[in-house]
Design a protein around this nucleic acid. Structure first.
Length: 441
RNA sequence: CGGGGCGUGGCGCAGCCUGGUAGCGCAUCUGCUUUGGGAGCAGAGGGUCGCGUGUUCGAAUCACGCCGCCCCGACCA
């Protein structure tokens, strides 16, 4: 992409309304624009990141055996009356009437609807286990939205729903999602820690929140330090097999958010030098809630014994739009964002230090063509800004590699690669630079 | 939902107290000079001062109402 033909509205000054660093950087780097309290438009750079995150989430969901569907944003109130949540959910739920005066709502979550889909088609235990997921915009009418996309009213969320014949099978389904989440967040460059959590209004009695440590995190968390150094399950993990050992290795160590924290237990179970108390951002949550929805909504299957039983369910959320903010909280410096390669909007920022200079232009065009041909997403700064402005923009938007081309380097036969994360600079001939950047893609 | 604050060119702000020609920096446009870490000079364009009502000869400025947004708390992915 040539910057001269792109839409990248970066701000030199910090917008007054943004308090936390991720919100400020998202506005400055031209990722989002606020359209109303807690409601954002996604600008070109922002939607690229959002899509990358979503793709990783989907890959790991599919790997774990979940199946993608897409449910609508608007739902009929009827479904929610069946589960009893139409009255329970309160003012957080955005209620709408259509032209026929029918009650609709903008979905804050989809347990009811997915249960309705399930019960319409599934009758036998032989069709289980089943896990259906989708990524869709949700709306929760927060009293006080804040922190940009970290706590917006409209947000993009992946939610998966598991259906099983009994509690044991449901537990295995829970474990599959638990392991998939460990992999998902690790792939985005985040260190996530599963912590015991309250089930909240979703309901249920087994739940973990996946927490990313960050100074600006919304909740206080307590855990055993060894959880920070747990290995990430491999890509070839057998999701049909027994995952209990992977889960148990983590759940047997103390980890809890402030809501369920028990300081006496914490001090008893964790030696002083292993105690970690920090702030954290919740990026995902897994629930097992049994028959909370299947029983009232009559989602039943016939078991091997010929008896009908309500299906055992769990739900598994990942805050996709929130993750953009969470990643920035974890990955930035004074100059701007530092995207992990896996979610970066572009892999390489090609910086022409002297647009209009024949030799420099020619070298850049050649590099741009070779990189894009090799499948490297490259943002080519071909504008006639001054070098300082180009460097500042590249640092701000956080592209992992800056490929810097100017007359001075070229006269020595070199271009320069700057690694955004470390600041390390390497001078080398153009051929070597292309090879360096193509590696590992 | 309680408490506090703010709405003035695209962005950041001053002006308001004490009513009288709407201002500054950045950005934008034109020209010249510059070009390896957010350039310099000269010129130009752009604002019903959130909306409404009232007070007044006269309202960005005073009063009242409304709307929007932000912050603290309670609540939450």
């Amino acid at each position: 992409m040539r910057l001269s033909h792109y839409f990248l509205p970066v701000l030199k000054e910090t917008p007054a309304e943004a308090q936390i660093v991720s919100h400020r950087l998202m506005l400055r780097a031209g990722l989002i624009r606020q359209e109303a309290a807690g409601i954002y438009a996604w600008l070109p750079l922002g939607i690229r990141v959002l899509n990358k995150i979503k793709a990783i989430v989907h890959e790991e969901m599919n790997r774990a055996g979940a199946i993608e569907i897409l449910m609508p944003t608007l739902q009929s109130a009827e479904l929610w009356r069946e589960s009893g949540r139409y009255d329970d959910y309160g003012k957080e739920m955005l209620r709408i009437k259509d032209r026929h005066d029918r009650d609709l709502l903008y979905g804050p979550t989809n347990e009811e609807m997915v249960t309705e889909i399930f019960r319409a088609y599934v009758r036998s235990y032989k069709q289980l286990p089943l896990n259906l997921y989708h990524t869709q915009w949700k709306f929760r009418d927060e009293v006080r939205p804040r922190f940009g996309v970290m706590r917006g009213r409209e947000f993009l969320m992946k939610d998966a729903y598991s259906f099983d014949i009994d509690a044991r099978a449901a537990r295995r389904a829970y474990n599959r999602m638990y392991v998939a989440y460990l992999r998902t967040f690790a792939r985005m460059g985040l260190k996530s820690i599963p912590m015991r959590a309250e089930a909240g209004p979703i309901g249920g009695d087994l739940s973990h929140e996946f927490i990313v440590l960050a100074e600006t995190g919304e909740s206080q968390v307590y855990c055993h330090k060894d959880l920070l150094d747990m290995p990430i399950p491999n890509e070839d993990t057998d999701f049909h097999g027994d995952l209990e050992s992977i889960v148990r290795a983590r759940t047997e160590l103390y980890a809890a958010t402030e809501d369920v924290h028990d300081s006496a237990r914490f001090e008893k179970e964790v030696p002083p030098e292993k105690r970690l108390s920090a702030r954290g951002i919740e990026v995902g949550q897994v629930f097992y809630f049994g028959t909370k929805y299947s029983a009232p909504m009559k989602a039943v299957v016939t078991g091997p014994d010929g008896k009908e039983v309500p299906v055992e369910m769990g739900s598994y959320g990942i805050g996709v739009s929130r993750l953009v903010g969470a990643i920035i909280e974890a990955c930035h410096d004074d100059a701007g964002i530092i995207w992990p390669v896996s979610v970066a909007p572009f892999r390489v920022a090609l910086i022409n230090l002297k647009s209009g200079d024949v030799a420099t232009d020619k070298a850049c065009e050649s590099l741009y063509s070779r990189l894009t041909t090799a499948g490297i997403e490259t943002l080519y700064d071909d504008t006639d800004e001054r070098p300082g402005a180009k460097f500042a923009t590249a640092d701000l938007i956080g592209i992992p590699y800056q490929l810097v081309v100017g007359p001075r380097g070229l006269s020595a036969g070199n271009v320069e690669i700057k690694v955004r994360a470390t600041g390390a600079k390497h001078e080398m001939p153009a051929d070597a630079a292309v090879e360096y950047l193509v590696q590992g893609n």
